[in-house]
């Protein structure tokens, strides 16, 4: 066992873990954060996507010990004070989910994608940006629409400001 200290959804969590424990099982079984799902065993499907220091990662392809000293954000922290995150709201409004199993991973991947982009994302950018997340229900169509809409809301001002020559 090894002691780790991970800041999960803003709270510092200390635990003794077996080195072989995957981050996704640390979240699900040790911390009880079952919103992050497991859909494959080959790092392909992206259902387990969380943010590590703000960047999307597949929590099935990290050991919990590798997260020691880092910040992890899961789907459970996306809504704040009862208010949905813009991406969550967009998935709801655009019917970007059916069974919902891939949805937490999609939302976390989308969040990272949107924040890394310089401005609102095109359809092609969203599609390639979500290549690490599989969905079997939606055909992706409404997921793509939802992420584009959320990107517009979250980043819509970026290009406008840049266009006016404004600095930071």
């Amino acid at each position: 066992m090894r002691q780790i200290s991970v800041t999960v959804n803003g709270t510092r969590r200390e635990a003794d873990v077996e080195p072989r424990q995957l981050l996704v099982y640390f979240l699900r079984e040790t911390l009880g954060l079952t919103g992050t799902n497991v859909g494959c065993d080959t790092s392909t499907c992206g259902s387990c996507t969380v943010l590590l220091d703000g960047q999307s990662v597949k929590s099935c392809t990290m050991l919990a010990v590798q997260a020691d000293g880092h910040e992890v954000t899961t789907i459970e922290a996306m809504a704040t004070n009862g208010e949905l995150h813009p991406i969550q709201r967009a998935f709801h409004e655009h019917h970007g989910l059916q069974c919902g199993y891939c949805t937490p991973g999609m939302i976390m991947a989308a969040d990272s994608l949107i924040r890394e982009a310089a401005g609102p994302l095109s359809e092609a950018e969203v599609r390639i940006g979500l290549e690490g997340n599989l969905c079997r229900c939606t055909g992706y169509q409404n997921i793509v629409q939802a992420v584009m809409a959320a990107s517009q809301e979250m980043q819509g001002g970026v290009k406008a400001r840049a266009g006016k020559g404004g600095g930071s």
Binding site: G35, Q88, L97, I107
Partner: peptide, 21 residues
Amino acid sequence: TSPPRKEDPELITGQARYTDD
């Protein structure tokens, strides 16, 4: 008409419980 789905709130927040949960 298309009211947004009743199912969604727990699914988009990670609160839904699948069997393995």
